[in-house]
Design a protein around this nucleic acid. Structure first.
Lengths: 136, 136
DNA sequence: AGATTTAGACAGGCTACTTGACTATATAGT
DNA sequence: ACTATATAGTCAAGTAGCCTGTCTAAATCT
């Protein structure tokens, strides 16, 4: 299982590099996954990633500098800044999803369609939705 | 899939802590996995872990200081030191395996026996044996 | 025998995190 | 309404795990 996760992470990272996104790391992908749904504040993102606000603040700064994210003001809370993906941010997210799909496809070829469907069902049943964060 | 890997790593780490092993990290587990088979040199271990000799040397020093590993001389090469797991090292390895089994058992309860068997088969078929290293 | 490679360790540097401290805004208690 | 407390975000400093570069001793090649 750990090997599969490693293959997937490596595959995404490699696919992103091939598509021109060389300045993002896996942890940024987890951030994109959170922001691609709806905007979030830095504190919410920190909770999602399982790291401190401070580290998240620096990570967000990195993404803003490289044009993946913009900070917009939250009308309901003057302290907070809502983080929104830019077009480039969305493009990077799509590229990561494609790279992930490519890796999963390579697994598909090792299995019968029925086995693959079972695998998908089992993984989805066990994992469920929820926070996704760096593991080790 | 990444969530499952995260659950597994967290489960192992937590299980180890409950069993009294609080001074090991996941990367040490990968080292134990390599050493529990047959002894290896630092350079071989570095190759297995996918990190430099220097980082491996420091990691080994950490494990020696804490009594998990001993360095024995290699009669066929006076430069090399063969790394051997101590009793404590083996105990930690077994504890990690038990903790991993506990986590996998919790998955088992979410699936039918047939589905679980299919999952095992599919994962084994895709992942295969080989080097295991930190992923992100 | 001499030249090159390899095992291991030491030194210094980088980076992604951490804890601690601080300001500005929001919320709760009286 | 006023005060006390909590929260959003950032700055500063420290830590840990990796890196590259360098070196010694032993092995291997010519």
């Amino acid at each position: 299982m750990l090997r599969l996760a490693g293959q997937l992470v490596d595959g995404i990272q490699q696919g992103l590099a091939q598509r021109g996104f060389t300045d993002v790391r896996p942890v940024h992908g987890f951030a994109f996954a959170r922001l691609s749904g709806e905007p979030a504040t830095t504190a919410q993102l920190a909770d999602h990633l399982g790291i401190t606000k401070q580290a998240t603040s620096e990570l967000v700064q990195h993404l803003v500098e490289r044009g993946y994210v913009t900070r917009t003001s939250d009308p309901s809370d003057l302290r907070a800044r809502l983080l929104v993906l830019t077009d480039r941010g969305h493009a990077c997210t799509r590229a990561a999803e494609q790279a992930a799909a490519d890796t999963v496809d390579s697994w598909k070829h090792e299995l019968t369609p029925r086995q693959f469907a079972e695998l998908q069902r089992a993984v989805a049943a066990i994992a469920g939705p929820g926070r996704l964060r760096p593991a080790w």
